[in-house]
Write a protein that binds this DNA or RNA. Structure first.
Lengths: 159, 159
DNA sequence: GGCGTGATGATACAACATAACAAACGCCGC
DNA sequence: GCGGCGTTTGTTATGTTGTATCATCACGCC
């Protein structure tokens, strides 16, 4: 499935990737009894346009084409909803947002962010999760949220 | 030494902790031939006033008492200098800054952030570092910077 | 003295995010 | 039908965080 696991951002079929993400989102929201309204779905689609994190005001610019009344709160509310449902992540080090490739499975998001091409890969690594849990446990710290963002150069850009 | 390793933010002698951090900073800057000017040292001292991350504009408020001419660029320039010398870290998830307890030893900063009391502990954990390196390596990603911020409740606040 | 470099002063602005209240919409019980 | 309620969206304004740009100052050096 195009949107799962280690996404090859430079080579994959991104249209299928978006379609899949939107389909998953519709199913999840239906199952949960929450409303993935046209506005929210449009925002999700905009965030998914690439595998690069997108800023809220970029979303707003794009959204404004179809939604003339869109304003910052319009966008932030939609982003908050989507984050609440686990459909997107916020990349804290960039103040930007990214589609979640594991929507539906509760998880912390861990990311590899290429500073050259901007492509950002969400990684799922049990060993890393274990190491994070252990580190918190050692300090008798009750972890609730993990922000793990590794920036550098992706395989494609070092090549 | 008060400022080293796992700081017990709730119990330790913080005055000694600040003094130690400032002393280390002066020594490091002298050794490197860079200028820890009075302005920069004052900013460092303000950041070190607690073990809670402090916002740039909070630094500015505090700095203004002694430096009437201080403006946002004044503060951001000092913070940039201090980060460049590895004397403070930026906590991305809070847009705030924190004194570095391992100044002088190049390292990624990994943090445990208590959402209740705000105390933020910098952790040094070789296993976590190894897990992060491995995760990047597996994706053939050349890591340059790591942002690792775990928020939740500290040992003191879980009771 | 004149020059180069690094640090600070000063003004303006850009980028990111939220507060607060109003209006619209669907749903449900009556 | 319609009145009340919860959810979503509209609207205006403002708060917070961070930079760009150019001027000025201090110091060492030849």
């Amino acid at each position: 499935m195009a949107a799962r696991g280690a996404v090859q951002a430079h080579t994959h079929n991104h249209k299928a990737c978006i379609d899949d993400a939107l389909k998953t989102a519709r199913e999840l929201c239906a199952a949960r009894g929450v409303q993935l309204t046209p506005l929210r779905e449009k925002v999700l689609q905009i965030v998914w346009k690439s595998h690069k994190p997108v800023g809220a005001y970029d979303v707003l610019d794009e959204l404004s084409r179809s939604h003339k009344s869109a304003r910052p709160p319009t966008v932030y509310r939609a982003l908050d909803f989507l984050m609440g449902e686990g459909l997107i992540h916020k990349i804290e080090s960039l103040n930007a947002y990214l589609g979640c490739v594991e929507a539906g499975a509760p998880h912390a998001g861990h990311f590899l962010i290429c500073r050259k091409c901007g492509a950002t890969e969400e990684i799922v690594d049990p060993k890393l999760e274990a190491a994070l849990d252990q580190a918190a446990k050692r300090a008798r710290f009750r972890a609730e949220r993990q922000v793990v963002e590794i920036s550098g150069l992706c395989a494609h850009c070092t090549g």
